[in-house]
Design a protein around this nucleic acid. Structure first.
Length: 802
RNA sequence: GGGCGCAUAGCUCAGCGGGAGAGCGCUCGCUUCACACGCGAGAGGUCCCUGGUUCGAUCCCAGGUGCGCCCACCA
């Protein structure tokens, strides 16, 4: 064993060994209690980032802990087919080749996506292995593999038959590059410098005009009204009259609507139902027509502007207005603009026919499960957020006009009847026509993700895996997908299987950049997860991420990860001492000395604390306990105290040291699996790998405070130089650990300073206990604690002749 | 605009009604036979501000200020 622990090589070796020996494998076995962590499937196009790394550290620690406790654990790996993200990657490749998806056609394109996936997709699972994540990689699934696709079709048909899926013409977010609808959650917003133009809309009767501010003059041809606030004194007298829309010179009414902001612009709003969400609502409520002037490609379709971009069309209209003195002013205006999160095209709201999933009834059972606490979010604040977001969930647009995804299982006959079925029907369900064409839209990616907890287990077949591993126990994920994924998984499980998919949802913190801001390309503050893994190894990375994971947003901390590296090395060297000094010893609990009884009790005590923290998903405090157990208790006190006896060949001491080390390794293994397994392999007489070794039983803790007096006197000695009066084991431990003979000579002032400190403490304690209001009002145990402290300070003061 | 989180040592963060802590960094001393990614000692803090509750507040309550995250978004 080298004096310095080097994770490189060691980690890869154990990752291969564990997997090859089948320790990651999950098999259905009704005789064993299952434990399932539902882990989010990453995008098949993705690579590891720090958020994945933290989530894996969380999930894998739980899985490894439960595996050692004897549970039949399932840690399911796989990918999300990631509709637009994947389509985008392949489209770019086609463009580089000088062709395009339209040029090669839909079938060939989908074929290309599969080819791309086979060649380049799914590399992220190797990244997961690199983290030491003990997923059952044999069971890897993708949300578009054959079996999974059947489950998705079944889900769609089920919802349709329940009457919860419908088609409707509504305004949706339209990406002109992908030419598809997008959900609100697939967008990003960014502040942009823009121009706000104030345009005069003449009154039809020639009596003046209404000035209207807009940033999108190109949508003017689709205006169908001008709206003002009903209480706006400036315009009230105009309500019900007509104005003339520039460019088209159509006459449209002036209407009143409370959704108009009086303070914005001129207080008058041009109503364009086809191209603005608010206008759409106003239009529907007032029964206005919904003409469009933007095509699927984002270019204008207005008369005289056909084929122009929005900017070009807007410029032409502004010129037209300027010539007629209808352009009042143009001013700089910075505002938030919506973009496609995949291609960064500017989103054009458009009205189109889409498939929708009605949420009103769907959300009732999940709400019940959340309100009753049947399913619990951690931390608690996220539980409330989950309920709020479910209560306010709008109907879900589930169709997309892209090519990569689950094609909606709906067929149209020539009369426009719709037949929905799992498999291609031979004839129309309404009219019997056999001339059917399939819906070309595909489903929103999250429609299939919603089935992850059970579609991966073979549903809709009742497989042994489904019986054993559903429902699961815990789901660990990031805050931002509660609405996209959590709520929908909970719904689908309750609806299709009748049982919730898991009991606990652990929302891990968002990992922020070192500067405390969100990691982003534009800020250039991102952390490269691979660089971190290469520099520090998986154990240290896992430790560091967990250590700093207490609040909802955590800054990435190299220091925390370095601390993990130091912990590995400390443990390694402690093991080196024991392995070399205890050659041939078999692990046994044979404490014959104070420090041995103490470390055994401390291991027990800390284990209970760690179990409490892990059970409450508090990884920050669990790792903190592990650090201090290893450094302070195990190394600084226990090993220092027992070291001499180990070298002397004391058989009992050697047996106990080996026993205690094994115990420590087990407690550390869930967080730092590699270094602990590596050390375990050096221990004599081991029967199994540490990964499947049994979790220890916490026992007697009564001796956990046995060294307290020595430790206190050590502090006093180090400050004052006065050697305390101790005898027996206490004196031996003090002499060997604190080494009074090696301590430098102290000046007398040190004794005085320590006396002064202790006198201060004693005076404070006496004053407090003399205060009747305190002794009368404070709880008895608080008063007792103060008394104990006072006694302790008095003892210490006596020890140095105060 | 809505929701949430955070403000404690130079830095990153614990603590959260009765002694102000850890890791890193810094200073000093240690080539002590597991470890210099080590051991020991030490310096360094109006615990964001203002009020309130309390015998007692860094901790609880109210208000304020600053930073951040998520969501929504006004033409």
């Amino acid at each position: 064993m080298q004096p310095r622990y080097e994770p490189r090589g060691v980690e890869e070796r154990w990752q291969r060994t564990w997997e090859a020996e089948g320790h990651y494998n999950a098999e259905a076995d009704p005789s064993r209690a299952p434990y399932v962590d539902c882990h989010p499937p990453p995008n098949v196009t993705g690579r590891l980032h720090t958020g994945h790394a933290l989530n894996l550290a969380v999930g894998d620690s739980l899985i490894r802990w439960k595996r050692m406790q004897g549970y039949n654990t399932l840690f399911q790996p796989g990918f999300d087919h990631a509709g637009i993200a994947t389509q985008n990657v392949v489209e770019r490749a086609l463009i580089d080749e000088g062709t395009s998806r339209r040029e090669i056609g839909r079938d060939a394109f989908v074929e290309r996506v599969w080819e791309w996936l086979h060649e380049y997709g799914g590399k992220i699972l190797d990244d997961f292995r690199r983290m030491g994540a003990s997923l059952d990689y044999r069971r890897s699934r993708m949300t578009m593999d054959d079996g999974y696709s059947r489950a998705v079709m079944q889900f769609f048909v089920h919802l349709y038959q329940r009457g919860w899926i419908y088609q409707a013409n509504r305004i949706i977010n339209w990406c002109p590059y992908h030419e598809t609808s997008l959900s609100d959650l697939e967008l990003e917003h960014e502040d942009v410098d823009d121009t706000l133009s104030t345009i005069r809309y003449p009154l039809a009767d020639g009596d003046g005009f209404i000035p209207i501010a807009t940033v999108r003059p190109a949508t003017i041809p689709a205006d169908v009204a001008v709206a003002v606030h009903p209480d706006d004194e400036r315009y009230r007298h105009l309500i019900g009259r007509e104005v003339i829309v520039p460019w088209t010179e159509n006459r449209v009414p002036v209407i009143a609507d409370e959704r108009v902001e009086r303070e914005f612009g001129t207080g008058a709003l041009k109503v364009t139902p086809a191209h603005d969400p608010t206008d759409f609502e106003i239009g529907r409520d007032h029964g206005l027509p919904e003409p469009s002037c933007i095509g699927p490609d984002g270019r204008s379709t207005a008369q005289g502007l056909e084929g122009l971009t929005q900017d070009e069309a807007g410029a032409k209209i502004l010129d037209w207005c300027r010539e007629r003195d209808l352009l009042e002013k143009r001013e700089h205006y910075r505002h938030s603009v919506t973009f496609c999160e995949r291609c960064h095209s500017r989103i054009e709201p458009r009205i189109s026919l889409q498939w929708w999933c009605s949420m009103e009834q769907i959300k009732q059972r999940p709400l019940e499960a959340l309100r009753s606490g049947e399913i619990r979010y951690h931390p608690e604040s996220q539980h409330r957020f989950a309920i709020d977001s479910l209560e306010n969930a709008p109907d879900w647009c589930i169709s997309r006009q892209i090519w990569w995804g689950h094609q909606i299982p709906a067929w149209y006959c020539r009369d426009g009847h719709v037949t929905v079925a799992r498999d291609e029907p031979s004839s129309c369900a309404d009219c019997g026509s056999s001339e059917l064409t399939r819906e070309t839209d595909v489903l929103d990616t999250w429609f299939s993700s919603a089935l992850w907890p059970f579609a991966t287990l073979g549903w809709p077949e009742r497989t042994p895996e489904l019986e054993q591993f559903y429902p699961g126990d815990v789901n660990t994920t990031a805050r931002d997908i509660i609405r996209l994924w959590e709520n929908r998984m909970i719904f689908s499980g309750l609806e299709l299987i009748g049982e919730r998919p898991f009991d606990d949802v652990v929302i891990h913190p968002t990992v922020l950049a070192v500067d405390g801001r969100r990691m982003s390309k534009s800020l250039g503050n991102g952390i490269d997860a691979f660089e971190v893994l290469d520099r520090f190894g998986a154990d240290a990375t896992r430790y560091g991420l967990l250590k700093n994971s207490l609040t909802q947003d955590v800054r990435f901390s190299y220091a925390a990860i370095e601390e993990g590296g130091k912990l590995s090395n400390k443990l390694w060297n402690a093991a080196r001492l024991i392995v070399t000094a205890c050659e041939g010893a078999t692990a046994a609990e044979r404490p014959t000395s104070l420090e041995e009884r103490w470390i055994i009790a401390r291991l027990s005590q800390t284990q209970r604390q760690i179990e409490g923290y892990l059970g409450a998903f508090d990884f920050a405090h669990a790792t903190d306990e592990l650090y201090h157990l290893t450094f302070d208790d195990f190394c600084d006190w226990y090993l220092e105290a027992v070291k001499a006896r180990l070298y002397e060949g004391d058989a009992d001491a050697r047996a106990t040291a080996t026993f205690a080390l094994e115990w420590l390794l087990k407690l550390l293994h869930p967080v730092m699996p590699h270094v602990t397994e590596e050390i375990w392999s050096y221990l004599p007489g081991r029967q199994t790998r540490l990964i499947v070794a049994s979790w220890p039983e916490a026992g007697d803790e009564s001796e956990a405070g046995a060294l307290e007096r020595i430790q206190e006197y050590a502090q006093v000695f180090r400050r004052s130089g006065v050697v305390p009066q101790l005898d027996g084991d206490e004196k031996r431990i003090f002499d060997v650990v604190v080494k009074p003979d090696r301590a430098p000579q102290r000046e007398n002032g040190n004794v005085e300073a320590e006396r002064a400190r202790l006198r201060g403490e004693v005076a404070r304690g006496e004053k407090m206990l003399a205060n009747e209001r305190f002794t009368a009002n404070a709880p008895a145990e608080v008063v007792a604690k103060e008394r104990e402290k006072l006694e302790r300070y008095k003892r210490e003061l006596d020890a140095i002749g105060g």
